[in-house]
Structure formats: C-alpha cells, structure tokens
C-alpha cells in the first residue's frame, strides 16, 4: 500500500469569473522510502500541491490520503522544509529546532531533548552556530537549520518546497549532497518540489513533471535509475543522463507551447475613437454648430 496517495485532486482559487483552476486531476502515489521529485515551471501550482499534502490547504475535489486516511490538517508525521526557510528570527538555531522537538517528542527529558537537538544540528554541520540567531547566518546555513528542524521531528514523509531555489549554485550543490546523505541514512519517504530538472535527476528516484498552469496536472513519470550514491560529474558524462534530461525538458516545453496555442482566451479590445484637441465646451452644445479644430 502506498504511504501517500492523491486521487483526482482539483484545486481552484477565487470565485465567479475570476476563478482560476490551479490544479486539475492530480493523481499521485508514493511508496514508502521513495524519493519523488515534482518538476514544474514557476506559477504552475507546485506550492499549492505541497500545501495540500502537508495539510495547510485542502483540495476542492478529490482526496489526499496518508496511509489510506484522508489528511485533515498538518501533523508532525510530515516534516516541511519551506522555500523561504521560515525560521523564527527571535529564536536561536537551537531554540528554533527545540520548538519542533517539543511538539514531536513532548515526553523526552530535558537532557534527552538537548542530545536529540544537538544530533541534528551536527548532522547539518552547524555545531559551531548552535546559539546564533538566523540573522547571523548565511542563506545556506539558514536552510540547513530548516532541514534540521524538519528532520528533528522524525517525520515519516519529508516535504521539500523548492528548498534550494534561493541559494547560489555552489551552496546548492553541497546542500543537495547533504540532504541526500541524510535521506539515505534512514530512507525516509521524500517529496521534492523543484524547478530544476538537474536537481531532480541527482536526487530523486522518480521525476514527475507538472504541466504549466492553470489547470496544471501531472505528466508521465520518468524513472531515474542511476546508482546511488550519485556523483554529479559522473552522471554528467553518462549519455543516458543527457537523453533523460532532454526528454523531461522537451516534455515540459512542449506542453508549455501547446498550452499557449490552445489558449482560448479572447482579448476584447475597447472601441475607441480618437479625441481631437480643440475647444472645450461648457454647457449644452448647440445643434448644427460647427466645431472648429485648431
């Protein structure tokens, strides 16, 4: 039985004429221990999709099932790594993580909690910054804190909403490796939302493209069967990688192009007549009076 299942999920925003169908007929099933990447262009509804899995939003139609039970709110069984880190600026690294540990493991003693938190801080290589505040950290370090905060809850599913898109290429590479290293240790189920096909190929077992919105839906899946641990330079040389990458990109571009062609939106241009500069009349205009321009 799959750990997570989305059945015919539809979601729209707004009402009446301004109603926008964001997602339509989303079907997805994720097995335990799998690493799934959902790749899509910006604005295609990726964040809406992940918010419905973590329980911050609910589908209009269809179901999100976790272990076969419908999701009715957020829970500590799903750890979320937000795109913009969402660290609380008035708490230190330690206390930011402690907030989630307090919720996930309320019965641990103080020492056990401390040990637990420090373990995860060490895991993301931030031991030297335990008592620093978010404003004193770089973007990459902040995202690591966010990763540690999500992992420290020991969730069944790790949900990552474009976790690395705000980082520079170099930090991005190291963090990708780190996340994979941590993930491969205890093989949690992971769902990664990204706009970077390479990132998906490097990290995931399966890549599922999300077609451009509105009315975005999931495309055919691409299996990634490179051996782990993957090395970006080696994969780069592999001809299979190039083909795969091109296939996915081509698919995404193609759907994007057809979407543009089939757009049934009509632009009604207003019927305007040019107004000539001339005299301004006050009061009623006399009939048959000739208006002199210039």
């Amino acid at each position: 039985m799959p750990i997570l299942e989305l059945k015919n999920v539809n979601k729209s925003y707004g009402t009446g004429t301004s109603k926008v169908d964001v997602l339509r007929n989303i079907n997805l099933s994720v097995e335990e221990g799998e690493f799934v990447a959902i790749v899509g262009f910006s604005g295609s509804g990726k964040t809406t999709l992940i918010n419905m899995i973590n329980g911050l939003q609910f589908p209009d139609k269809g179901q999100v099932l976790l272990h076969g039970n419908p999701v009715n709110g957020p829970g500590p069984d799903r750890g979320v790594i937000f795109q913009n880190y969402s660290l609380l600026p008035w708490l230190s690294v330690f206390k930011n993580i402690k907030l989630s540990v307090d919720e996930a493991f309320p019965n641990l003693s103080k020492q056990e909690k401390e040990k637990h938190i420090n373990k995860y801080i060490k895991m993301v290589n931030l031991s030297h910054a335990t008592h620093k505040y978010p404003k004193e950290l770089s973007g990459g370090m902040r995202q690591r804190v966010s990763v540690a905060r999500a992992l420290a809850m020991n969730p069944e599913i790790l949900l990552m909403d474009e976790p690395l898109s705000a980082l520079d290429a170099l930090t991005r590479g190291t963090l990708q490796e780190e996340i994979i290293k941590i993930w491969s240790k205890d093989k949690k189920t992971a769902i990664l939302i990204t706009n970077d096909v390479d990132e998906g190929i490097l990290m995931a077992d399966r890549i599922i493209p999300l077609t451009p919105g509105p009315k975005a839906t999931l495309g055919p899946e691409f299996k990634i069967d490179f051996k782990r641990p993957r090395d970006i330079t080696e994969i780069n040389k592999d001809p299979h990688y190039k083909r795969l990458r091109n296939d996915i990109l081509e698919y995404l571009i193609e759907v994007g192009a057809t979407r543009k062609q089939t757009s049934d939106q009509k632009y009604l241009l207003p019927d305007l007549k040019p107004v000539m500069p001339g005299r301004v009349f006050f009061g009623r205009k006399k009939k048959n009076e000739k208006v002199k321009y210039f």
């Binding site: 911050l56 500590p76 937000f82 008035w90």
Partner: peptide, 23 residues
C-alpha cells in the same frame, strides 16, 4: 510564514500566542 510554521508544528493556541504571535 510564521503562522504556517506554527500550524505545521501543530502548536497549541497558548503556545502559538506566546511563542509566535507575541514575539
């Protein structure tokens, strides 16, 4: 973002007020 964090962590109302909203 902070409210989302508190929702994802399932903080109680009291904790949400004193740990997130007030600060």
């Amino acid at each position: 973002d902070y409210i989302n964090v508190s929702k994802v962590l399932k903080l109680s109302i009291g904790k949400q007020i004193f740990k997130i909203i007030l600060p």
